[in-house]
Design a protein around this nucleic acid. Sequence first.
DNA 1: CTGAAAGCGCTAACAA
DNA 2: TTGTTAGCGCTTTCAG
Lengths: 334, 334
Amino acid sequence: MTIKDIARLAGVSVSTVSRVLNDHPDVSKAAKEKVLAIVNEYNYIPNTSARELGKSSSDNIGVVVRGMSNPFYTKIITEVGARIENAGYTMVLQQIGTSDDEILTAARMERDKKLLGIIFLGGKLNYTKEQVSTINVPFVCCTFNNQYGNLDKADYSSVCIDDNQAAYDAVEYLYKEGHRRIAVLLSGPDDGSVSQVRFAGYERALNDFGLDLDENLIISINSFNIADAYEGMNEWLRNGYDFDSVFAISDNMAMGAMKALREKGKDIPKDVALIAIDGIEASEYMNPVLSTLCQPMDDMGSEAVKQVVGLIKGKINHKHIVLPTTLRAGETLR
Amino acid sequence: MTIKDIARLAGVSVSTVSRVLNDHPDVSKAAKEKVLAIVNEYNYIPNTSARELGKSSSDNIGVVVRGMSNPFYTKIITEVGARIENAGYTMVLQQIGTSDDEILTAARMERDKKLLGIIFLGGKLNYTKEQVSTINVPFVCCTFNNQYGNLDKADYSSVCIDDNQAAYDAVEYLYKEGHRRIAVLLSGPDDGSVSQVRFAGYERALNDFGLDLDENLIISINSFNIADAYEGMNEWLRNGYDFDSVFAISDNMAMGAMKALREKGKDIPKDVALIAIDGIEASEYMNPVLSTLCQPMDDMGSEAVKQVVGLIKGKINHKHIVLPTTLRAGETLR
DNA sequence: CTGAAAGCGCTAACAA
DNA sequence: TTGTTAGCGCTTTCAG
């Protein structure tokens, strides 16, 4: 069943069918009704590939998201979707696995879907000029930036929190409560991810507060996984190092750590205080409720859209927006 | 940059370029290298739409998943993806929102991607013959079946647990511990979803155990949301009804309920015992660890793939597989 | 308001 | 081993 069949069945030309299918004006009511009737009768479904191939332009904005199941992005996506719709564009969502290349994905989408702009939700901090040269439409990085890459600030946009400062703040909360043996739970101290940035904030804070960086207090797992955080924490606890608190670089990892601590008989926050960064919904349901620095997800989403749309319309230049975090008091600090 | 440009630049014909791009045999080493060089130099990316349009067949198996962020499906998808790959096919994943129509999505995909078969991960229990008539390739429902629809059993496959029995079992665990005032937390008693099936199991169990169905003990929220479960439980608790335990139809909802109970000063499981169905990872990290009947996610995934592949190869007929659940003891039962 | 026809970028016979 | 060419199913001028 193709557009040709419908045309024949409806007794009109394919262009007329195409017009009614695309809500074009200049189609007589009679023709429209006739076509629609046939379309319904035969359950005709236009071929998307052919459609995209034939089209000369689109109103598509691409959103490529790292991590299919990352709850952190869910809220942002909702917001982004609504705002894009609202601005009169269409969101084309593409989720990719951890091993996929977001730049390549974006480049493909740009050509396939004729994108006008792109929003990256999560991604690497070290894109190079050469890599992004395959992308020819404006793009904005949401929740991260290019601090380990060599992009020109005038060539891309970003909206994120100050991860270094957030980590600093987290440590400061612990410090002000009197904690001096502050462990850090991270993915890798220099894995080029946001983990590294937040670790730098941790280091900076220790330094400012006159605390020595103790290698034994660095709990490094090689993922952002809740199960790995649990295992990693378990293993680390066996060393019996002296500590009074933990700064986890993400809510998810903190949740894994909580279980390990609890099983070890450590009371949170009496024996061990805990703070993290992110503010995902799940950590609100933990017992005790996780104390964490929340990223302003809605604002990040709407700002990101505001950016691409502005860029698409050529009304603004690339900007780098830093949004503030807010503390969710929770119950893991005392 | 199209295949034509590459052909010209490499001094060969488009078909030769197409051949090397698709790893066809019968291409001289020289030609292959030449083409690849140009492709790399210009960062050429083939247009997917054109590719799909031109192709006469594919090795694609479609997977349509309800709920972008449902952690329950994540593990299954991983398993399904691996198995499909393993069987020599390609997985085409499509996630849809709660308001989208999975049948329509599947029908579209079938045509666009030239699918050989489809796996539905989550979906409605009441498809009608007419609805699925738009689908012309074999499909299998994973984690659900058609018990509220009118499909012929010989026309589709399914792999799922016995939801009614699982609910029955859950209630039985509570009953055997001496609980008699068993509340049920569900989405809707007759919303046509799995909630309804599990509620039926709850009713059957009460009946078998000689307990009366008490309307006051039915906590109905209109979603599967953790936040809504929390709110709903909170609200219900204000009534002050007498109860000694809760059967939540899903882990996620149970997690919301736990917070509400805790805030009300109820100790779990001392004051209130709790059991659910699903066995998602997150509920393992709750404090106390949620007691729940786990769905065998890996098995469901691999069985689903075994089914489609068998159907595609024409080696088997439609089957309806029921897999057993296993109890995760947890800490919310005593 | 409608139709004919030329693409869109690629694949796949079919010849050579 | 290679090139020519006819589609794939749709959109979009351009005439009428």
